[in-house]
């Protein structure tokens, strides 16, 4: 097993972010606002699940265990994703009475994707070669994800009153958890000093600058201070929502992890 805990922690946070958000996205399958969006959103979720898979494979090579095992069998407190990304899509479940909130889906994905792009740009200069390669491949697909969510965000923010009201409330909800996404966790300094990734402060500033531009463009009031209300997922703090998500994700695999599936 690698001795470099900072690197492993960084890889887990990158992989778990994509894994959990792709899962939340896959719950929307068949339920998106229109058929064209169903196809597009599904394609984005596949990309994200693919990114997570690449990252879990790097962890596998570092001796963390098989990619399938570490993605399906870790306990919630071992996950390093941000809490915002694990939160349910809305009331109900993807199988029964899903009262999912599209405004939340758009805002969460938009905020996350802008950050992911900034993070990937930094990782393209990472001192860790496998991350550098991954970042390059991810960035190509990410460009389309960003265009997609940018379009949704701006379009809904500038349309009917109801859309604006729903979007504003989703923005408030995401804003008070966004610091959890922007956080690198307890080992932030080591990750940066070893040249794996840019500093948390630097990436947060870039994210805020991007957001200010967006909000100005659509003439919307810029929200107040960012926060992290429910805890820091980067140090294993999570909600009940992650627990139930992991139960669903591993329901079949868990029946016999040694069998071929």
């Amino acid at each position: 097993m690698t001795q470099d805990k900072a690197l492993v922690e960084l890889l887990y946070s990158l992989a778990d972010d994509d894994f959990i958000l792709a899962y939340r996205g896959s719950e929307w399958l068949g339920l998106a606002p229109h058929i064209e969006e169903d196809v597009a959103y599904s394609s984005i979720n596949q990309d994200m699940m693919g990114h997570a898979t690449r990252l879990y494979r790097i962890l596998e090579e570092l001796g963390e265990g098989k990619a399938d095992e570490i993605s399906h069998l870790r306990k919630p407190e071992q996950f390093r994703n941000a809490i915002l990304l694990e939160e349910r899509n809305g009331e109900g479940t993807y199988l029964e009475k899903p009262d999912f909130d599209w405004a939340f889906a758009v805002v969460r994905n938009y905020f996350y994707t802008v950050h992911k792009k900034i993070r990937m740009e930094s990782l393209r200069k990472s001192s860790y070669e496998p991350l550098k390669d991954t970042a390059l491949k991810v960035s190509i697909e990410l460009q389309y994800h960003l265009m997609h969510w940018d379009m949704w965000f701006k379009q809904l923010m500038t349309s009917t009153d109801e859309a604006k009201r729903r979007m504003t409330s989703a923005i408030e909800r995401c804003w008070i958890e966004m610091n959890g996404v922007l956080s690198l966790g307890p080992m932030a300094d080591e990750m940066t000093s070893k040249g794996y990734v840019a500093s948390e402060e630097d990436m947060r500033e870039k994210w805020l600058t991007h957001m200010k531009k967006t909000f100005e463009e659509i003439n919307a009031p810029f929200p107040k201070r960012l926060a992290m209300s429910k805890g820091n997922g980067r140090q294993g703090e999570h909600t009940e929502d992650l627990k139930t998500a992991l139960q669903t994700l591993s329901e079949v695999y868990e029946t016999n992890p040694t069998a071929g599936w």
Binding site: L29, S43, Y56, T248, V252, W261
Partner: peptide
Amino acid sequence: KEWVPKAPSLHRKLAIMAKVQDEMG
């Protein structure tokens, strides 16, 4: 779609996501 999140490996998850997306397409 009921089985997309539950597919029993990363590979199966990716494959079934792609498959259901095709059907929607």
